[in-house]
Structures are given as C-alpha cells and as structure tokens.
Design a protein around this nucleic acid. Structure first.
Lengths: 331, 331
DNA sequence: TTGCCTATTGAAAACGTTTAACATTTGTAG
DNA sequence: CTACAAATGTTAAACGTTTTCAATAGGCAA
C-alpha cells in the first residue's frame, strides 16, 4: 500500500542504497542516478518513513519543549527563539503541555526515555530537583526560564533574585516603605528567588519585613484582584505592590482602579514579564522584562552542543533583565 | 550501551517475544514469566524504544496540533480539550508552531508524511484549501477553529458568519447605525465569515455598507489602536466598532479611553473570543465566546474515530457560540 | 497406551531505513 | 596491455520492536 524506498529503487532502476544516498545527498553517486531517483521520487510521491530512519540512526532530530500550559503569552517569544536556534541545526521543536501536573510531566519525559525525541527543555519544571537532576545524567535535558537548586544541570534563565531586588528597590527609591508582595502558593524556584530579592531590598533599606504584606495565590489575574483587596483591607495599607507576574499585577490594578485608588500615586505597581497586555492596560504597568527570545535561543544552542559532545555543559546561565518604567510607578 | 528488550530477555531467562508480551499485557503468558520480566525491567531500568515499536506497528499514538503561534491565549483551552480527548485513547498531543508561514506549515505536515505522527489538526491553516484538501485524502487531517471553503475535510468550528451577524445585530439593536469593522488583512476563512455576518446584519437592517468604516490590519492590539484612530478621524465617525478579535478590540478601546471617548456610550465595542484579559480591561469588553475546550475535544474524538475506520467522516461541525455582554456595549 | 486439546514458549520474519563491506566498472599511468 | 586507483553500484546486516507460526509440555478423555 505505502510507497517505500524499495519502490523508488525499482522505479529508478537502482538499488535501495543508491536511493538512500541520493536522499541524504551523499557524494558518491552519479549525476545520472540522482536524476533517475529524483524523478522516481517525484512520480511516486514518495516521502521517507522517519520511523525507519530514526530507528536506524538512533536519532530523531526533534526536541521537546515541555510547558505547563500555553496560557502564559510570553512563552511565545521563548519558543520562537528555540525554533530559530533549532532550525540552523535541522531540529524541530515540539511542544507539549503538562497542565502543571508533575505526573504528566513525567509521562512526557517518557518520550525521551523511549527515544521519541532527542532532548527535552523544561520551561517550568514541576518535578522535584532530585528527579530531574538524576534524569539529566542519562538524557539530554535542559531548563529554561527557571533554575534548579541542585545546579548540575544546564539552565538558561535570568537572575530572578536580582530582578526582585531591582524592582523592589525601585519602589523604595520612590519613597515607598510599605511594599506589598503578591506571589504564588506553588514554590517555583523563580518565585522564591524573586521573593528573596524583595526581602533583600527591604533589608538593605532597613525596612522591617511584614508578613501581612505578602499575599499568596495562583498565577492568574484573579489572584491579583483578591490580593489587592486583601492588602488594601489592612489597617496599615501598602503604598506599593510588587507582583511576581504581570497577569497578577493587572488583576491587582483592576481592583485599584475600580475602587478609586489612584494608581501611580496612591499606590504603585510593579509587575514581571512585560507581557503584551501590560502596556495596553491603562494605567500602563511598570515591569521587569526578561530576554525571552534570547533565553529560548540560548538554551537550544547549548542543548544541541551538549548532544554533540560527551562532556556536557551543566552550567546555569543568567541572562540580563531590565526594568520597564511606566505609569503604574508614576513614570 | 543502551538496554534493549534483548537484555531484559537474557536477564529474565526468557525470549524477547515473551518480554514483549509481558510489556504489552498479553494474556497468554505465565505468572512466573511476568514476574521474572518485571523484575528484570526494574533491575535494568529498561524502557522500550518507541522507534522500534512504532516502526513495527506503523503507528505512533501521537497527534500533532499545528498552530500559528502560542500568542493567542485562547488556544490554551482548545489544547486542553484536545489533550483530554486524546488521553482516553492513549494518544499524546504534540504542538508545533508555524509562525504563520505556509512553507513551515508544509514542513510540519512532513511529520505526517514521514509517519512521525498519526494525524494532524490544523488550528489556523495558512496553506490553500486545495492543498489541504488533497492531503486529507491520503492522511488523517482535521481542521479546528476554522473551516475550509472546500468542504471535504473534517472541520470543527463555530458558525463564524452567524457570530458576526449576531454581534453586529446586537449593536444595531442598541440603536447604532454607523458601525465600524476592524479585521485582518490576511484572509482567514473565519475572518471572512465574520465580515460576511457583519455585512448581512447591516443589510437586513437596511443600513448601507460603507467601505470607509472597514479597517484592515494584523491580529494584534496595535491594529486596534490604529484602526480606532483611523475610524475616529473620519468626517462621519462610527458610533460602534466590531473587531474580529478581543486583542484588536482592547487596542481600539485603549485609543478611545486615552482620547476621552466614553466607551459604552459615545462608542460601543464588540470583540471576539472572550480571552481572559477581556474582562480585566476596564471598561470590560463585550464579546463573542466560542466553546474552545469543546471544539478541541470534539475534533480529536472525530479524528481518532476516523483513524479507526476506512469511511472517514469529512463533515464540518459548527458548535454553538454565545454573546457575552459587558460595559463596552453599555451593559 | 494413544490421541487431542490447551497453555505457554521461542525462533524468526517483518517494519523501512542507513551504512559497512564488498564487487564491479571506468579511467589513467606506466 | 597491465596494474592500480577512483568511482559507482550492490548486498546484506543492523537498528529494536511486534507478531506469526511452529513446537513443546501437560492434562484429560477414550
């Protein structure tokens, strides 16, 4: 039923080996044969079965990017960077979502064990560090946008602690002393790092840390709304709020706007990620921008390099972030 | 180097056939053998190589979802629906992005020709209908969120013409006569259908169509901003604007808000998609909601059904949409 | 005892490709 | 004309599975 390399060989009057060589542009084959084979391929509408090829070569030229969900719009740029880097080496990037379920994440890693892909990039690992670290000894795994507390695996990320510090310090520089923090219940390393940066900034400014000013929730806008409500209900209200994501910040600002609080004056907001909507929402949100495209590009370059050597690079790379200042901080 | 089924067989003192049978839970194997094999698998840390399996079985249990980019947040729900449906039949959903390049879309379809996946769902086809229709005769392809003008391929979508009609009619019902339309330069079928619905609504209300009221752009917020600016610069300004996406609408509203136009009164806005941000942006956006999760779930169910039969279902299914009314239409 | 059935097992073929090893032809120098 | 190298072609093994087929062993009825 299906056309195989054999049929092409027959049609072109050559051996299957010759066909294979033509298809893989090996040099030791006559111009004549090339023509014949190409004609036959065209005629029969043949396209090689990768299952056979991959099995023989023991490689698939595919890399799997594992993300929680496609909801986070800024993944888009990361993936673009990944694709661009993959393309130059002839790799394809596939994406799969875990829906933030560690079990499903493990299931997807199965594609690595079973050789369905050559490597994996984890964009927001939910599995514990130990497990990932162990697996990375046997397979090609890299982390992007995050880092592991066990640092024996390739990571490409930003310095989230420093970024949290920078954002908070900026608010302090604006004369704010009661700075709220809205963060996630789930302890991703990046959240923890950002929180630590927040703490360090307070500390260095001799502002005592007040646990009442920290609100824990999900990674969504509703958390921001509820967080802002909770913080503004305190006897001693905050005069600024730093959130570990723009989505949260936007939710928080929605609350403020609707309750007659003047954003950028009564209350400053600092977000994180610089998502597209952050400069559309009015007042515009000040935020931390991370180099998404570059992180994606870098992680794939490093990962592919690792695949070619047997002395894999297990470093953690921290790319530079920057602050984007807009109306929500009175700029 | 790598552990294969042979190694397991040796360790368990059985043949490879028996190992394979155990691994695939065939019934005709003794309890004794099952134990031995499982022990050996455990000991060696074996996991089967799918390249071998897939080649032999000529199936991969993988379906590829091809999208333009992950920027459109509402894909998230569609993909969730797809995954849930795939899971019950033991399939995995992989995602790949074309970056809206038809050539790259064709490249990704190559995974189908080369048997790297069993089927493909196109979420926003950029290739011409004829090409897709031809391919669908040889491979398992379905379309989701869109339809083809050639209707001999499985599609799961909504009635976009009707939705455009409904949204526009609603604005007319609010007493509006000069209704602007912001749509995309790129002629996706859904955009065309929505535009046609807009036209029909005008027609049925005996409002003459004015080409000046139509603004063409991209699928982003900036288009909305520029579109709103252009339309509001007309001598004869619109009193309502329907956009074929929420992102565009939000961009358009941003312009209005910043120029002192009272949204919901001076100017009504109607969007499309009901993205998460559409009810966070103030004023809140009225919009058309389509059943994302259900469309994703349905398309995979139908596609998998098609894989099991040789009388494939080539119908177009239109699932029901609904209008969400908020402040932007004065509700 | 014999014959027959069932349950379990293993050997080997098959999936479609790549590639190492070998064989043949052609070209060139001596 | 021979000898040898280069170029090209062929054969068959290999990749890791699943599955067909045949074989074996044991149980049971006659």
């Amino acid at each position: 039923m299906n056309i195989t390399i054999k049929d092409v060989a027959k049609a072109a009057n050559v051996s299957v080996a010759t066909v294979s060589r033509v298809l893989n542009n090996k040099n030791n084959v006559s111009e004549e044969a090339v023509q014949a084979v190409n004609r036959a391929v065209e005629e029969l509408g043949y396209s090689p079965n990768f299952l056979g090829r991959d099995l023989r070569k023991s490689e698939t030229k595919r890399i799997l990017a594992i993300i929680g969900s496609t909801e986070q719009t800024f993944y888009s740029d990361v993936l673009r960077g990944m694709q661009d880097a993959a393309f130059v080496d002839g790799y394809d990037i596939l994406i799969a979502t875990t829906r933030n379920d560690p079990e499903h994440e493990m299931h997807l890693l199965g594609m690595l064990f079973s050789r369905a892909v050559d490597g994996v990039v984890l964009l927001a690992p939910k599995l514990d560090s130990k497990t990932i670290s162990d697996l990375s000894k046997r397979y090609h795994i890299a982390i992007c946008l995050e880092r592991l507390d066990i640092s024996d695996i390739l990571c490409v990320t930003i310095d989230n602690e420093r970024a949290g510090f920078d954002a908070t310090s900026y608010l302090i520089g604006k004369g704010r002393r009661r700075i709220g923090l809205i963060t996630t219940e789930v302890r991703s390393q990046s959240s923890v790092d950002r929180e630590n940066g927040y703490m360090r900034a307070l500390d260095e400014a001799n502002i005592p840390f007040d646990p009442d000013l920290v609100f824990y929730g999900d990674y969504d806008a509703d958390t921001g709304t509820r967080g802002c409500e909770a913080l503004m209900s305190l006897a001693n209200k905050p005069d600024a709020i730093f959130s570990i994501s723009d989505t949260i910040s936007i939710g928080a600002m929605t609350y403020a706007v609707q309750h007659g609080i003047t954003v950028g004056k009564d209350l400053l907001f600092f977000g994180f990620d610089n998502i597209a909507y952050s400069h559309m929402f009015i007042p515009r949100l000040s935020t931390v921008e991370q180099p998404c495209y570059l992180q994606g590009k870098t992680v794939i370059e490093k990962l592919i390099a690792n695949m070619k050597t047997d002395e894999p690079d297990k470093s953690t790379y921290m790319l530079p972030h920057s602050l984007i200042l807009r109306e929500s901080t009175g700029d």
